[in-house]
């Protein structure tokens, strides 16, 4: 079965991203496909490449990045929600005339249509939020 996961909260502040990660891992282990992980609302903050969590804690962004690399996950950050919150990839930073970018290369920026399309293409869409 194909799942699209929607993550609406940032890392650490809420458990939403952790629950989604554990769900994704378990789904893959059971032979299901994660069609897309879509990051929206404050969930876009999961994509920062600049977080430095304490060593005895989990690194939420890296953990997603590793899972994505291992299983070729399509991890999409909503561009509108990201721009509002100062989350930019290199291309977008150039376009907006900003002097820095902060999106981890494991994630890609795209529009909200990717969420709707994820809902259409997957067998189930599951929201993790607050």
């Amino acid at each position: 079965m194909k799942f699209t996961l929607l993550i609406n909260e940032g890392p650490y502040q809420h458990q939403a991203s952790d629950t989604a990660y554990q769900f994704a891992k378990a789904a893959i282990e059971k032979g299901h496909e994660i069609y897309r992980v879509f990051f929206y609302n404050d969930g876009v903050n999961n994509a920062t490449r600049l977080a430095v969590p304490p060593q005895d804690d989990r690194n939420i962004t890296e953990r997603w990045a590793e899972l994505a690399k291992e299983h070729e996950l399509d991890m999409v950050v909503c561009i509108a929600a990201a721009q509002r919150r100062g989350m930019l990839d290199a291309d977008e930073a150039g376009r907006q005339g900003k002097d820095a970018d902060n999106i981890h290369p494991a994630f890609r920026i795209s529009g909200l249509g990717q969420l709707v399309e994820g809902g259409i293409q997957a067998d189930r869409l599951l929201t993790f939020g607050d």
């Binding site: 554990q22 769900f23 378990a26 059971k30 067998d123 599951l126 993790f128």
Partner: peptide, 20 residues
Amino acid sequence: VDYAGFVDMVAEHSNVQSWL
């Protein structure tokens, strides 16, 4: 249930609503 059970439940039901 564990996470694997959570996954099974999502697959076995017609749709899912997260009450936030």
